[in-house]
Amino acid sequence: MGSETGMGDPILANAIWIHQYPSKSRALAVTRNLTLKQDPQYQMQGFVRYKFNDRAAMHIGYSRLWGGQRTVDGTDLVDESRQAKILLGGSYFVTPKALLLATLGRDISVENGFKEASRFDLRVLYIF
């Protein structure tokens, strides 16, 4: 039905997430009744995948996180999160229904958060 070039098939994919925090919640309610507000936090990920054949592929990606600025009773806490990360990985169909996905990642820059020197994710996907 289809044809393969023998050189692989590059695929571009991206995703955007928005995390909306509750508009008002109480902070430090034990001592005073203060109001905590937090702006939405956004994350964008983009990947380029190179498909070697029907079973194996590799990917390279970039992730960016920003937002989440907090205020307490109108006072800005100056704690907006910013993060940039690069990712490299591959996937392999062990069987027609079982996929192994491995990704190695590293934070390039982080503001107001924890910086990961490196990470390794190994995932197994089984299609029912």
Rank of each mutant, 00 (worst) to 15 (best):
Q38R: 15
Q83L: 15
D121F: 09
E80H: 08
Y62Q: 08
G113A: 01
I60A: 15
P96K: 08
E111V: 06
F114S: 11
P10T: 04
K115H: 09
A57P: 02
R106C: 04
Y62N: 11
R49V: 02
F114D: 10
T71E: 11
A15N: 14
A102L: 07
I86R: 12
G46N: 11
R82D: 12
G67N: 04
L101E: 03
T95V: 00
K37I: 00
Q38W: 08
F120N: 03
Q83D: 08
V48Q: 03
W17Y: 13
K115Q: 13
N33H: 10
L122H: 01
V110P: 05
S3A: 15
Q83T: 04
L12G: 04
Y92I: 02
S25K: 14
I11S: 13
D76H: 07
E80I: 01
G8T: 02
Q41H: 03
W66F: 10
H59F: 14
R26L: 10
E111I: 07
M58K: 05
V110D: 09
F52M: 06
T71L: 03
D107K: 06
Y62P: 11
A56R: 10
R70Q: 13
T75K: 15
V78T: 04
G113T: 01
I86D: 09
S63P: 05
D79I: 02
R106N: 12
M7K: 15
I60G: 15
G74E: 07
P22D: 08
Q43W: 09
W66V: 00
V78I: 03
W17T: 13
S63G: 15
I18M: 05
R106A: 13
L104A: 15
L65T: 15
Q38I: 00
T103R: 09
A57F: 12
F93I: 00
L77P: 02
G61E: 06
G61I: 02
G68R: 06
F128T: 02
P96D: 06
K37N: 08
T103K: 10
P96S: 07
L12Y: 06
Q83W: 01
A117I: 00
Q41E: 11
E116G: 09
T71Y: 01
D76Y: 01
A29V: 04
A57V: 01
F114R: 12
T35K: 03
E80S: 12
V30D: 13
G6K: 08
R55C: 00
H19F: 03
W17M: 12
G46E: 07
L99W: 04
V78S: 06
Y21E: 10
Q43A: 14
A29C: 08
Q43G: 06
F47W: 04
M44E: 05
I16G: 13
N33A: 10
M7S: 11
G105I: 00
L125Y: 14
Q83V: 02
V48P: 05
A84E: 07
L104D: 00
Q38A: 15
R123Q: 09
M7I: 05
I16M: 15
F120A: 07
A102T: 03
W66Y: 11
L125P: 04
